[in-house]
Nucleic acid binder design. Structure first.
Lengths: 224, 224, 224, 224
DNA sequence: AATGAATGAGGATTCATTCAT
DNA sequence: TATGAATGAATCCTCATTCAT
């Protein structure tokens, strides 16, 4: 009675687990693209479905809610960032300068513009309608990555005591979110910064982040 | 029966400019209360109207859009914070310790929980549907306050060069937004932090902010 | 940003309480028509809105949920039936024959076809998404009408003891619901009854109800 | 990860007719359990499939639509009830008291709570999307059972004329459906009946049914 | 200036059914 | 036979905004 229609060439069915994982990734890819295009004006599931060329219902086979989908997207992007940082830092030998380490962390963020947007909305929006286990899984994954990469930082910056590495990363993420917001104003706000008086509101995100993170690391050393 | 009104004494008409300003403030008061109660689950104009005991249409005589209203609320709260900081710092004589100054800025944030929430959503949401002049006015006001208070900071921390005061305040605001998010997880996320492995994700907002800001100030000094 | 469109000639605004009541009634009228047309295939709010020539959102100003609307419709029809019965019985003098009383109750049902459908779905569907106070109000109203009309029946049939009138009405409503279902098969089932062997499944609702109710009243007398 | 299957040993294929019948029964068993658990909030095919440990598509090999499945379930439960009544009445010798016979019919209903729910929804919902032959087969089966058991009743209650037995059973079913609805209110409605004024709305289903059926039988006798 | 009824686009989610494997 | 991924129409409800009074 329902579901009767003339489908366009149907997508291959994801039958094996690896196919399913691939489809899941494809959905996240689509979500990422939609997010990119629509910017803040929140993307809709209809958009994502259209972009994936899948039926809306199919999305719900892979993610229980819209928020779970976007949380997964954020997670994927975060893990990628951690991977990149880990690979980067693995090539370094201890001890390192604060400035150098700050550069590595900051550079690894290049091209992750939208991830940061998502990160900003994380608590405000995403955790609204996310099944509890998804939240727990996310937090657990985050904790693990923070501790792992934090450990590496403690090796490279000997003045960091046990556990301080993860904490510094947390502070770093705070700077990322906060500075991104200040440094990446919406178009409307750009007009404001043409005023010379307001020129100091124009920040280069990566440079500013580098400066702030360096200061943070140096300050941590001095403060003990 | 729904939809049957209980007529109440109509509010006095705001004829004179000062009456209008008062009404505008009353609306912001109501919006603030609504925002407090509803938290993230975004407050509606209906809520604000009910809280003000004005009709919904009346709100639109004072604010063109919902976003303009909440931007005005954020501005009011921000200016209050600046006022408080300015008064605080005026009592101090140069030079001051980074730690002390950090404490003053941080303490001035006590009780502004919700302002910080608004601040977080600022670029992501608020600037969506805000008339351009409102955005410009906000940015102009913000710039002025940052420069003024930044100047005071430069006086108290002699190692800060001209213009660095405002910049440090910008970094501070980034930390505020970012740390608030990390340190104030939604209820669902709290469950996650019961896990001892994740305990380090639990932060005390003010303390953490103090630590990070102190580090930032000290680091700025060392980095020159 | 929303709500921008070119409306067709807008309906007059229901400003006074009596206008609102009228509009409420108009919505119920529309709902009734939709229910009639769509039959069992459940009517949608979109249908009701189109029929009323009101916007969908407007319906929700008068009824909080779809179910509340249809409960109100049922209530209105029920109260009408009670009114009719009360007027009818008021003209009679005690004592009456069971058969006569049964005829009055049964005849008052003429033309209330759809009300009975609604009545059938009452517990199964309607009470799903109905605000609790609406349910309570309905039950209270129902109780009052049953007791009032039950009292009249006790006057007319002296063998009925105090309280038995309402109880008989409850049994009557059970018969109404149950017999209506048996006696009013959906089209598909009609084909079945062409078979002579199954001819006895064809019942005339009103006649059958009369027979059964008479039997019920007589039996109550004999059983004491 | 959602959408990743845990393969389990596939169920044996039902090749022989008796295997197929067994599988059909197994599906009905599952449907029955699902119906029990989910109550009114209508059970889904997904639920039934999960409960059967069969794939959703497999259900459609045995039943063409959801409604056909639940009609089959109702039929199975009804025939069981008739079997029980027939066995019961076979042990009795004519003539019997109305009260006694009413007790037998009523008692046979013990534990068929959910069947009655289904019966209530019969015309309203079930016959919507049922293939015509399925409807015809159901009606035919129903007719046969009614006539057979009706005949037994005519033997036990000599005042019943030919054909009146089946008719009384039809009236009985009406009482069952109707009283069940009144006597088994949804939880929300229960609150209403705490009010002493509404206490008379609280009925004991079996007792009430016994009273009403006895009255019906006695009344039929008197009315001739 | 104030009102508040009316608007209606828009969005998330469900679930019976199909069909390629 | 059995599978289960894919389908997509369908539905309820929200809420910022308007405008006649």
């Amino acid at each position: 009675m329902r579901g009767v229609s003339t489908p366009r060439t149907a997508p291959a069915r994801a039958r094996r687990d690896e196919d399913k994982t691939a489809r899941r990734e494809a959905i996240l890819d689509a979500a990422s693209r939609v997010w990119d295009e629509r910017g803040y004006a929140s993307a809709t599931m209809t958009d994502v479905a259209r972009e994936t060329r899948l039926a809306k219902g199919t999305l719900y086979l892979y993610f229980r809610t819209k928020e779970e989908l976007f949380l997964a997207l954020l997670a994927r992007q975060l893990w990628t960032w951690f991977d990149r940082v880990d690979a980067d830092l693995a090539a370094l030998s201890a001890p390192q300068e604060a400035r150098t380490l700050a550069a590595h962390l900051t550079e690894a963020l290049r091209g992750t513009h939208r991830m940061v947007d998502l990160l900003t909305l994380l608590s405000a929006i995403l955790e609204q309608n996310v099944p509890i286990e998804a939240t727990l899984a996310f937090k657990a994954g985050l904790g693990e990555r923070l501790r792992r990469t934090g450990g590496v930082m403690e090796r490279l910056l000997p003045h960091l005591r046990e556990g301080q590495g993860a904490r510094v990363l947390l502070h770093f993420s705070a700077l990322v979110v906060g500075l991104h917001q200040v440094a990446t104003p919406v178009p409307a706000a750009k007009a404001a910064t043409l005023d010379p008086q307001l020129h100091f509101l124009v920040l280069d995100f990566h440079e500013e982040l580098h400066v702030a993170l360096t200061a943070l690391l140096l300050g941590t050393e001095r403060a003990g």
